[in-house]
Design a protein around this nucleic acid. Structure first.
Lengths: 337, 337
DNA sequence: AAGAAAAATGGGATCGCTCCCAGATGAGGG
DNA sequence: CCCTCATCTGGGAGCGATCCCATTTTTCTT
């Protein structure tokens, strides 16, 4: 027996498949009585239109592909959520793939999506410095929006955050609270976001006339563990450091542990700032000051742009959108004035 | 111009579409020279087989549907991760839908998947008490595995954790450390998991001869906020409570805040235990004792069962799998002996 | 009540692929 | 050199829908 087709429905209802098709897509032009009857037959046969067949002719799948570097990373959750909301509202499903922090894997995901499974792709990219992987031929003509990365090619819209300014703002905040010996803990060296934040840090330090800044930069790798280890180094360096700026929240959390283990109090003995504003920051003791990325908003907007370009709504999409990072003040910065 | 089809490739390579099809699916029986040539043409035309067309005839989509109650809930991440790993290994994509904690929505997701978009469904269910929604007709014959819920119908495999035993173990642990006035903070009243855990708590208390247990049960709703509020109540009740058992970790985290706000020390002044073992528990201060659910493993196994039944590997799938909850000891229980 | 316009229905082509069966080609043995 | 058998290749049907166009039915005018 197997699944029933549009033809079975037509036969049982005593009409043609065209008419059935009309009621499925409720296009009108069907007598109410016929419509009712067909609907009833559909139910009795437990009929559901086959979406492959449908996609084959309409060239629409009504699903959009989403690629993230790591499904289980807290960081990406809000992007996904934002995208989901818009997707649901516009009647799109999401197909989720993870690139597992691998450029090749990312390309592979893109290829998957190039096989007509999706109507468009929302790519939350690992932001590798200098990776020009976007001449991905399988994507030809496929609507694409990239989040968390900025491109200047003016054909693929990108959504990102002003990381440099974030670094600048955070550092300024510490400077304004009287700190001068401010350490900066970087993320992975090949990640643009980390580099940009460091750039902002440098600028602020330079402007403030703190000459030592080069010696205050410590390399981390975005993990909590590295935050812990680097912080131990900082504490043992004995350079008179009074504040630490971490390139992301996870490292800050590791840092907090290290600081507590040393028996020091935050912010009395040491001030610190993180970056990203993960939700769980408010659960940490102490909740700490950090720079917020509007991740929900970014996912939301990204999805909107994508759907715009899928459906050729002729409002012209921006080539790139850049959000500010906002300083969220909590209890981890002590004024030293 | 648009995308090229198998026909374009055939024409340009001077062969028939059948031969092209053979090399696409590398079924052999193609002369090496022809194969090379076709491959080359495919590349030059930037050809990618259309997966809808393919699914239409093969009746396979190579994607599996995954439904979770909330994409952004930390709790579900590890399930997803486990499922993903198996999916990738077996060459399946994942289509992710979220039911947003709504029975109707869950049914709707199921329906989506019933339209031939996926080869099987892995459902992480909101575990509503007494919801018999699984007579979902659109699923007819669709392989399905349910996680985080136990069913006795013996046709849909379920994977769950022994929540009652978890409640029992946690309570025993506190009792063995000399606590008797142990409060229990429940989760949502309509969630089976919460009820079962409470059941275990009751049993342990009864066995230990603590008669007051009914007065020590406080209703929460699984959120951090409710954990905070309930804990304040507990602290102000003045019943001589020395330990609190939370039905999940999030509430425990809220509880910790409340306790700290009162100026009390954990575990010196008050002991506590959570439930689930979220990854972020180790980031909390203090890291607390909790009962681990093997969520990664559950997702992993669930996906395995699902793929088994999709591919009719004739090893018979179990009707249900139940894992133990394991007590993970950290620094939140003080012995009072 | 007849004719025109509008509404409802049916039929066939088509989307891009797989799969079965038939036919062509090539190698090897007598 | 012919026949057999294995290896390659081609052609047509079919998967389950949509969509266009033609045809039938209904409704409305006058």
């Amino acid at each position: 027996m197997g699944k029933s087709t549009i033809f079975d429905v037509a036969k049982k209802a005593g009409v043609s498949k065209s008419t059935v098709s009309r009621v499925i897509n409720n296009q009108g032009n069907v007598k109410e009585k016929t419509r009712k009857k067909i609907l009833k037959v559909m139910r009795s046969l437990n009929y559901h239109p086959n979406s492959s067949a449908r996609s084959l002719v309409t060239k629409r799948t009504n699903t959009i592909g989403l690629i993230v570097p790591d499904i289980t990373d807290f960081f990406y959750l809000q992007f996904i959520k934002g995208a989901e909301v818009v997707g649901i509202k516009n009647n799109y499903n999401m197909m989720l793939l993870s690139s597992r922090w691998d450029v090749e894997e990312e390309r592979y995901c893109l290829k998957m999506f190039g096989e007509g499974r999706v109507d468009g792709v929302l790519l939350i990219s690992g932001n590798w410095v200098g990776e020009p992987y976007l001449n991905c031929p399988e994507l030809e003509k496929m609507p694409l929006v990239i989040i968390d990365r900025t491109l200047n090619n003016h054909v693929i819209p990108t959504i990102n955050v002003d990381n440099k300014n974030g670094g600048y703002l955070g550092t300024r905040h510490l400077l304004e609270n009287g700190h001068r010996m401010i350490a900066f803990v970087t993320g992975l060296a090949n990640q643009k976001a980390s580099l940009d934040r460091m750039e902002g840090y440098r600028q602020a330090m330079d402007e403030a006339g703190v000459r030592e800044s080069e010696n205050l930069i410590y390399p981390g790798d975005f993990t909590e563990k590295s935050g812990y280890q680097v912080t131990r180094q900082v504490l043992e360096a004995g350079k008179g450091i009074t504040a630490i700026f971490y390139a992301n929240d996870l490292m800050a959390i590791g840092g907090i542990k290290a600081i507590k283990d040393k028996g020091l109090i935050i912010p009395d003995d040491l001030s610190l700032i993180g970056c990203d504003d993960l939700e769980l920051v408010s659960l940490i003791d102490p909740p700490f000051t950090t720079l917020r990325q509007p991740r929900y908003k970014m996912g939301y907007t990204g999805m909107e742009l994508l759907i715009n370009s899928i459906e050729h709504k002729d409002n012209i999409n921006p080539a790139q959108i850049i959000y500010h990072m906002a300083l969220i003040q909590r209890n981890s910065v002590q004024s030293r004035s």
